[in-house]
Design a protein around this nucleic acid. Structure first.
Length: 190
DNA sequence: GGCGGAACGC
DNA sequence: GCGTTCCGCC
């Protein structure tokens, strides 16, 4: 099994921003068009389902669930080298880098930093699980979106005025995204 | 839904 | 400072 990487707390090269390969799930993996025993067995194994599970029940019940791996949401601080929970914009960057969260949100125009939220409630739930400042109440898409709106003032993000659509500012793009044209990676450390 | 003011908390 | 909570307005 090649290209399989595991998070290792002792591995100083671990960079959560580039942990895309930690595990890769796409919705294609759950297609029931191909009902080969190998795939079904893999899915049952992944979700610890009894081998007797009816194949027809798998898609409806479990295609939605992405197991939370807290370690893939950690940010390593530049000077201190310590791991911490991500800020909201860091969470967004991480989320958009992970192909297994493509069903939650994805870029519609990556060069402009425009992305669309597909699963508002799921993202709010995920943000609640991952964020630093915890509270007793439930995180909602409304509150999640309000937090993003504060970024307009600091120019981390900019308005799109479009439903479920957000945009990183050019400032943020330059700072945290690789310019794929000249391949000059600027400040990739968060 | 999106927006942004206001009060709040850690 | 960085959101969180609430909410009136569009």
């Amino acid at each position: 099994m090649e290209n399989f990487t595991m998070y290792d707390e002792c591995n100083e090269n671990f960079d959560p921003l580039f942990s895309d390969d930690m595990f890769n799930i796409s919705s294609d993996d759950f297609s029931m068009d191909d009902d080969s025993d190998i795939i079904l067995t893999s899915i049952k194994d992944w979700f610890n389902l009894p081998s007797t599970t009816n194949p027809d029940d798998i898609l409806d019940t479990y295609s939605d669930e992405i197991p939370l791996n807290r370690k893939e949401w950690l940010i390593q601080d530049s000077p201190s080298q310590r791991y911490r929970a991500p800020r909201l914009f860091e969470f967004l960057i991480l989320l958009l880098r992970k192909s297994h969260y493509e069903s939650y949100a994805s870029f519609t125009d990556q060069s402009k930093g425009i992305f669309q939220v597909h699963r508002p409630d799921k993202i709010a739930e995920l943000w609640q699980a991952v964020k630093s400042r915890q509270s007793q109440q439930k995180m909602t898409y409304d509150k999640f979106a309000r937090a993003i709106r504060w970024y307009y003032k600091s120019n981390l993000m900019q308005k799109t005025n479009t439903r479920y659509t957000f945009q990183f500012s050019s400032k943020t793009l330059e700072k945290y995204f690789i310019d794929e044209n000249n391949n000059s990676s600027t400040n990739l450390l968060l």
